[in-house]
Design a protein around this nucleic acid. Structure first.
Length: 930
RNA sequence: GCCCGGGUGGCGGAAUUGGUAGACGCGCACGACUCAAAAUCGUGUCUCGCAAGGGGUGGGAGUUCGAUUCUCCCCCCGGGCACCA
C-alpha cells in the first residue's frame, strides 16, 4: 500500500478546490443560514509566520465545521496594507511602498493558500487600493458633516531622534519603541475624531455582547468612566471661578486647598494677580518645567511638586471658607476639569501633597454611629467592605467574632447581632464568619442608618458626645489564641486606621448631611452648593493624523486664508501621490509632492493647498469587514441588502493586542455608521474570542535574536499542512493560552494522521456492525460540541480515542471510517479529501464523488451512544473500594444491594453502622458508615 | 493600588460543572522486530509503600456522604489601567 505522502496530495487538492470554486460564497444560498466568521486581516509585512497560521488556519476548522452543518459560511481574507511596517520595509529596501506591498501580498497569498483554508479570495479586501480608501475618505467626510471630526492642538508623543510623532502604543516605558530615546510631549495640530461622544454607549452596549468578560473589562477600564460632580469655587475678589471635578463631593467640608493643573487655562490670568513678582516667576518656572518633563520622569517619580498662587484664595461653596490655590502636575490637565478640590484627609495624593507643603488636613465625618457602643471596633473601608471585630468586653482579650462582606449603609444589623452574640461568647472565628456574611445579605433592606466612618481619627471620635468607642490598639498586643490569618487581617485593617491617626484630625460636623451614605451625601451636597452631577472619562478623542507617507490621505484642502475645507465626494479617491521621497525627516512626506499641490490648485483654485497628513491605519481597519460583503461595489461602500444578509459578524477571532484599540475603534465606527443611517446594527461583532500566541520551543516569544523562530513553511514542507493545522489545534484550548511549539508534539500528530491513513486497510465492505459503534456515535457528538466551543484539543483527543479503538479491531465498518474522515475533515482537509475519493472505489456506484468538504456533518444517534454495560464505583465513606460492572438497565435497588454485598464493602463497613447509601446514577454508590 | 484571568504529573493539557483526578498527546522506562540503529508495534509511567494501604489538584480553613469544582482568608503567576481626583 502506498504510504501517506502529503507532498503528493496537498497541492493537488488546493488546485482542484480553486478550479472547482468550492469556497466561493454567494450572499444567499438556498435555505442556508448565513454565518459570517471573521479573523483580523494582516499587514503584508513579509513572511507568514506561525502566528498567522494560528490566527487563520485554526479558526478555519470552525468555519468548515459550520459549513458542514448547513451554514452558508463567509470566511474572507484580505490585507491591512497601509502602515508603518510596509513603509519601513520599503524605505529600507529603497523601493516604492506600493510595489513592495504588492509583492508581499502576492507572496503571502501563496503561503496562505498552503494552509488549505476555505478563504473566499474573490472577496479580498486591500486597504491601500484606491477603490477601498475612496470609501474611507467618503466616511471621513460623513463624520465631518456630522461634527465628529475636528482639528485641535494636542499634546503628542514626539521622538526627538527620529523626528516623528509616536502613537501611544509605540511608546514603551516612556521611550521610543524603535530607538529607545526618551519621548517628549509636544503640541501639534491634529485631526481628531469624537470617540468620547460615544463613551457611554461604548461602555453600556458591552452588556449586550457575547464577549469574554476579560475583554469587556479591559474596554471599560480603558474608557474609564467615573461618576462625580462638577463644583464651582469662586475666586476671592474676582469674577473668576474654578470648576473642579470630584467623585467625593461628600468630602467637600474637608477641602483645605484647591489645585489647578499647570496647563489649566485660568493659570495665565491668575498668575498676574499673585502677590509678588517673585511668586509669579516661580509659577512660570514651574509651568515651563512641567512642559519639558519627560514622559519617563512622570511615570517613574510620583513625588509631588507644586507652587502656590500666593495671595489668591478660592471660596469653598459649602462653608464659605477661603482656601489657598496651588498649581501642581499631579493634577492632569486633560481629565475632569483639570482642577481638583483637595481633601487631604480622604485622598492619598492630596494627603501626600499636604504633608509636603504643610497644608492643613481636615477629617470629615458624615455619620451616625449610635449602635457602635457595645462593639469594640467597626471599620468601613472606602469600598464599603465592612469588617467587624467583636471582642469579649469582660477581659478584652478574646476575639469572639469577626465578619466581613460588602455592606450597604442603612442596615441595622446591630441589634440583632447583639442578641445573637449573647449566647455564643466563644465563637470560632472561621466557622462563624459565614454565618454573619449570610446574615448581612438577608437583612440588606432593613433598618436605620448605621454608620459611615472613613479615615477617622479614633481620638476624635472619642470626644464625640454620647458614644463610646473603645480603642483598638488597647487589645492589639494581645495576640494569644488568634490564628495567623486573623492576625494578618487584623493588622491590615488596623493599619488603615492608624494611617488616619497620623493625620491632624479636625472634626467637621456637617450635621445637615448626617446619616447619609457617602453616595447619597455626594448627590445632596452637590445640589446644596449648586454643582452638577457629571461623568468623567479616561478615554480621549482619537487623533488620526499621521505624518507619514503610506496611508490614506486625509481629504482636506486649505483655502488661501488657511481655512480647511473637505474635498468633495466627487473627487474621491483623493489619490495618494507617488512623486514623493518618503524618507522620514520629521515633516509630512506629502508636503513634497508637486503633483498633489498642482492637483489641489487645479481643482480648487490658486493658493489652495492640500492637507499633507495621512490617516492612522486603525481608520482603514475600522470598517473593512463591511467591504468583504461587497468588495467590487463602486456606488456604495457596501449594498444595504448585502449588509443585512451578513452583518453583524457572527464570530470574530483575533489577537488580544487589539482589545482596546481596533476592537474599540471599529465599534465606535460602526455606531457612527448606524447613527448616519448607513447600517442597521448597533454592534459589529456578536461574539468575539481572543487567541494566544505561539511561543518558541524554549517557551519564549519567537524572535530572530533569540534564534527560536519556527518557520511554518519548512514544517509544512516536511510534515504537511494538515499536520501543522492539527498540531496547532491540539496544543490547548484555542482561547487565551500561549503555547510553546514542541517539535516532538508535531511529530505526534503526524503519527496520528499516518495511522488514520493506514486504518483503511482494515475496512471490510461487508461488515455492517461493530462493537465500536457506540463510541463512533459518542465521538460524533463530542467532537461537534468541542468544535462549537473552540476546544479543538479535546475534539482531536476524542478522535484519537476512536482511532485507538478502531485499530484494535480486526476489521472495521466502512461507514465508521467515513465518519472518522468527516470528523477530521475540518482539521485536516487534504488527507481526508484524498482518502474520501479513494474510498469512492469501495462504494457501490461508480458516479463522481463530491468533495468531502461539501458533504454534511455526520449525525449521531443518542440511543446508540448508550453502552451496554456501566461501571459503578463503590465507595465507603467517600473512598473507592470496589468497582462493579452492571448492565445499563440495572435498577438502582439492584445496584445498591449488589454494592452492599460486595466483599470489600463488607470488609470496610465491618463493625460500623451503615447510615446512608448515596447513589449517583450510573456512576457510583457511596456507603456512609460510622 | 484598582479591575480581569489563572495556579492540576517531567511537559502541553483532560475531568460530563459537586460524583472513580491525571483523558489525549509528548517525554521517559522496559519489551518485540532488527546484525545494529531509526521507524513501527506492545507494556508501564502522580507519589510513598514489598504489599495491605496512605497522601495528593498553590497554602490554610469551611460547607458536604463526597470538593480540582462551592464559600472565606492568604500566597504566587499572567494581562489591563494607573498621580483619573
Amino acid at each position: 500500500m502506498e504510504k501517506y505522502d502529503h507532498k503528493k496530495i496537498e497541492k493537488k487538492w488546493q488546485e482542484k478546490w480553486r478550479e472547482d470554486g468550492i469556497y466561493r460564497i454567494s450572499d444567499n444560498a438556498d435555505e442556508k443560514k448565513n454565518f459570517y466568521q471573521l479573523v483580523e486581516f494582516s499587514y503584508p509585512s513579509g513572511n507568514l509566520h506561525t502566528g498567522h497560521w494560528y490566527a487563520f488556519a485554526v479558526p478555519d476548522i470552525h468555519a468548515r465545521f459550520k459549513r458542514m452543518n448547513g451554514y452558508n459560511v463567509l470566511y474572507p481574507m484580505g490585507f491591512d496594507a497601509f502602515g508603518l511596517p510596509a513603509e519601513n520595509a520599503a524605505i529600507k529596501n529603497g523601493g516604492d511602498p506600493a510595489e513592495w506591498t504588492e509583492r508581499q501580498m502576492e507572496a503571502m497569498r501563496t503561503q496562505l493558500c498552503s494552509m488549505g483554508a476555505m478563504f473566499d479570495w474573490s472577496r479580498e479586501v486591500i486597504t491601500c487600493n484606491p477603490e477601498y480608501y475612496k470609501w474611507t475618505q467618503w466616511m471621513f467626510n460623513q463624520f465631518l458633516k456630522h461634527d465628529l471630526v475636528y482639528r485641535a492642538i494636542t499634546m503628542v508623543n514626539w521622538c526627538p531622534k527620529d523626528q516623528t510623532i509616536l502613537a501611544n502604543e509605540q511608546v514603551v516605558d516612556g521611550c521610543c519603541e524603535r530607538c529607545g530615546t526618551p519621548v517628549v510631549q509636544r503640541e501639534q495640530p491634529q485631526w481628531m475624531l469624537r470617540i468620547t461622544k460615544y463613551a457611554d454607549r461604548l461602555i453600556d452596549d458591552l452588556d449586550t455582547l457575547d464577549w469574554p468578560e476579560q475583554i469587556k473589562a479591559a474596554q471599560r477600564n480603558w474608557i474609564g468612566r467615573s461618576e462625580g460632580s462638577e463644583i464651582e469655587f469662586k475666586i476671592d475678589g474676582t469674577q473668576e471661578k474654578i470648576k473642579v471635578f470630584t467623585t467625593r463631593a461628600d468630602t467637600l467640608f474637608g477641602v483645605t486647598y484647591v489645585v489647578l493643573a499647570p496647563e489649566h487655562e485660568l493659570v495665565e490670568s491668575l498668575k498676574s494677580k499673585v502677590e509678588s513678582e517673585e511668586n509669579r516667576k516661580e509659577i512660570e518656572a514651574y509651568i515651563e518645567q512641567t512642559k519639558h518633563k519627560l514622559e519617563l520622569e512622570r511615570q517613574q517619580s510620583k513625588e509631588k511638586t507644586g507652587v502656590e498662587l500666593k495671595g489668591i484664595k478660592a471660596i469653598n461653596p459649602a462653608n464659605g471658607e477661603a482656601v489657598p490655590i496651588w498649581i501642581a502636575d499631579y493634577v492632569l490637565a486633560n481629565y475632569g476639569t483639570g482642577a481638583v478640590m483637595a481633601v487631604p484627609a480622604h485622598d492619598e495624593r492630596d494627603f501626600e501633597f499636604a504633608q509636603k507643603y504643610n497644608l492643613p488636613i481636615k477629617t470629615v465625618v458624615v455619620s451616625n454611629y449610635e449602635p457602635i457602643t457595645r462593639v469594640t471596633a467597626l471599620l468601613v473601608n472606602k469600598d464599603k467592605d465592612l469588617i467587624l471585630q467583636l471582642w469579649n468586653k469582660e477581659d478584652g482579650k478574646k476575639l469572639i467574632g469577626r465578619f466581613g462582606g460588602h455592606v450597604e449603609i442603612g442596615e441595622n444589623i446591630f441589634e440583632t447581632l447583639k442578641r445573637e452574640m449573647k449566647e455564643e461568647i466563644e465563637l470560632d472565628i472561621n466557622k462563624h464568619s459565614y454565618y454573619f456574611a449570610d446574615y448581612l445579605d438577608t437583612h440588606k433592606d432593613e433598618g436605620d442608618i448605621l454608620f459611615v466612618i472613613e479615615g477617622v481619627d479614633v481620638s476624635t471620635l472619642k470626644q464625640h458626645e454620647g458614644h463610646e468607642i473603645i480603642e483598638l490598639q488597647k487589645y492589639l498586643p494581645n495576640t494569644e489564641g488568634l490564628s495567623e490569618n486573623t492576625l494578618n487581617a487584623w493588622k491590615k485593617y488596623t493599619s488603615n486606621l492608624y494611617k488616619a491617626d497620623v493625620r491632624e484630625g479636625i472634626l467637621v460636623n456637617s450635621s445637615r448631611f448626617d446619616g447619609l451614605s457617602s453616595e447619597e451625601a455626594r448627590v445632596k451636597i452637590t445640589e446644596f452648593v449648586g454643582g452638577k452631577l457629571v461623568k468623567a472619562y479616561r478615554l480621549r478623542d482619537w487623533g488620526i493624523s499621521r505624518q507619514r507617507y503610506w496611508g490614506c490621505p486625509i481629504p482636506i484642502v486649505y483655502d488661501p486664508e488657511g481655512t480647511a475645507h473637505p474635498v468633495p465626494d466627487e473627487h474621491f479617491p483623493w489619490l495618494l501621490p507617488t512623486d514623493v521621497d518618503h524618507t522620514p525627516d520629521g515633516t509630512a512626506p506629502l508636503a513634497r509632492s508637486r503633483e498633489l499641490f498642482e492637483r489641489t490648485e487645479k481643482i480648487f483654485g490658486k493658493g489652495w493647498t492640500p492637507e499633507v497628513e495621512t490617516m492612522d491605519t486603525f481608520v482603514d481597519s475600522s470598517w473593512y469587514f463591511y467591504r468583504y460583503l461587497d468588495n467590487k461595489n463602486s456606488e456604495v461602500f457596501a449594498a444595504t441588502e448585502k449588509i443585512n444578509a451578513w452583518m453583524p459578524v457572527d464570530f470574530y477571532i483575533g489577537g488580544a493586542e487589539h482589545t482596546t484599540m481596533h476592537l474599540l475603534y471599529s465599534r465606535f465606527w460602526n455606531k457612527v455608521l448606524l447613527d448616519l443611517g448607513l447600517v442597521t446594527q448597533n454592534e459589529p461583532y456578536t461574539k468575539r474570542i481572543n487567541h494566544g500566541i505561539i511561543l518558541g520551543p524554549d517557551g519564549n516569544k519567537m524572535s530572530k535574536s533569540k534564534g527560536n523562530v519556527v518557520d511554518p513553511d519548512a514544517i509544512v514542507a516536511q510534515l504537511g499542512a494538515d499536520t501543522v493545522r492539527l498540531y496547532l489545534a491540539f496544543m490547548g484550548p484555542y482561547e487565551g493560552g500561549n503555547y510553546p511549539w514542541d517539535p516532538n508534539g508535531v511529530v505526534g500528530v503526524r503519527r496520528f494522521l499516518e495511522r488514520v491513513w493506514k486504518l483503511k486497510e482494515k475496512i471490510d465492505p461487508e461488515k455492517k456492525v461493530c462493537k465500536t459503534d457506540p463510541l463512533v456515535h459518542k465521538t460524533i457528538k463530542g467532537v461537534g460540541e468541542d468544535i462549537e466551543q473552540f476546544k479543538f484539543n479535546t475534539a482531536i483527543s476524542k478522535m484519537m480515542i476512536l482511532l485507538n479503538a478502531l485499530e484494535k479491531e480486526e476489521k472495521i465498518v466502512l461507514g465508521s471510517y467515513k465518519i472518522l474522515l468527516k470528523l477530521l475533515a475540518p482539521f485536516a482537509p487534504h488527507i481526508t479529501e484524498e482518502l474520501w475519493h479513494e474510498l469512492s472505489g469501495l462504494s457501490t456506484s461508480g458516479e463522481q464523488v463530491d468533495s468531502i468538504h461539501l458533504t454534511s456533518w455526520p449525525e449521531y444517534n443518542e440511543t446508540k451512544i448508550v453502552e451496554e454495560n456501566i461501571n459503578v464505583a463503590v465507595q465507603v465513606n467517600g473512598r473507592v473500594r470496589a468497582e462493579i460492572v452492571f448492565s445499563a438497565d440495572a435498577s438502582e435497588d439492584e445496584i445498591k444491594s449488589k454494592a452492599m454485598e460486595h466483599e470489600m464493602v463488607k470488609k470496610w463497613t465491618e463493625g460500623k453502622v451503615v447510615k446512608r447509601v448515596v447513589y449517583v446514577k450510573g456512576r457510583l454508590v457511596n456507603i456512609v458508615a460510622s
